[in-house]
Amino acid sequence: MDLMTLVPNFWWLPAILAAVLLVDALMSFRPPKFIKDCLNGVNFPQDWWWTLIVIKLLATAGLVVGIFVPGVALAANAGVIAYFLAASVAHVRARFLKQEFWVNCLGILALAVVVFLFSFVV
């Protein structure tokens, strides 16, 4: 595999995803009602909410570093897709399919898939 395929085709796509994840992580420090409702709706223990902030901040860092370092944004982007796929499964299993699921969870998942496709595949 050529090294250039491991660097995003358009640097600004991973940057946009990183910005969205950063805002999401920062909001989670003092989560607004819709984030609380989402996490409670899937029965995610409040004692573990901090882990989601760490995951999103690490993904943000990986996406930014990966603009310059081959392979890092690809791995971070794949991780974001896996994270939001798992979150989607949690929503479906808990039957918590309210607006938070459709807008936040599936919205960021769709963004991550688009970024992946146009940054590393197309």
Rank of each mutant, 00 (worst) to 15 (best):
M1H: 07
M1S: 12
M1P: 01
M1A: 12
D2I: 09
L3F: 13
M4Q: 10
F10C: 11
W11Y: 12
W11S: 15
W12T: 02
P14F: 03
A15M: 14
I16L: 14
L17V: 08
A18W: 08
A19Y: 01
V20H: 13
V20Q: 10
L22C: 12
V23L: 08
V23T: 10
A25K: 08
M27W: 03
M27D: 04
S28M: 12
S28H: 11
R30M: 10
P32F: 04
K33V: 15
K33F: 12
I35V: 14
K36E: 13
K36H: 07
K36P: 07
D37R: 15
C38V: 13
L39Q: 08
L39D: 11
N40Q: 15
G41W: 07
N43F: 09
P45C: 09
Q46V: 15
D47P: 00
D47R: 06
D47L: 11
W50R: 09
W50C: 08
T51F: 12
L52H: 09
I53C: 06
V54E: 04
I55L: 15
L57W: 11
L58F: 15
L58S: 12
A59C: 10
G62Q: 07
V64W: 04
V64K: 04
G66D: 03
I67W: 09
F68Y: 10
F68K: 09
V69D: 07
A73M: 01
A76S: 08
A76R: 02
N77Y: 06
N77K: 00
A78W: 01
A78V: 08
G79N: 10
V80W: 01
V80K: 00
I81L: 04
A82C: 13
A82V: 11
Y83C: 07
F84C: 03
F84Q: 00
A87E: 02
A87L: 07
S88E: 00
S88A: 05
A90Q: 06
A90D: 07
R93W: 08
A94W: 08
R95M: 02
K98N: 12
E100A: 03
F101P: 05
F101W: 13
F101M: 14
C105Y: 05
L106S: 03
I108C: 11
I108Q: 05
A110N: 10
L111F: 05
A112M: 00
V113C: 02
V113I: 10
V113T: 00
V113K: 02
V113H: 06
V115H: 05
V115P: 01
L117R: 01
L117N: 05
L117Y: 10
F118S: 08
S119Y: 01
F120Q: 00
V122R: 14
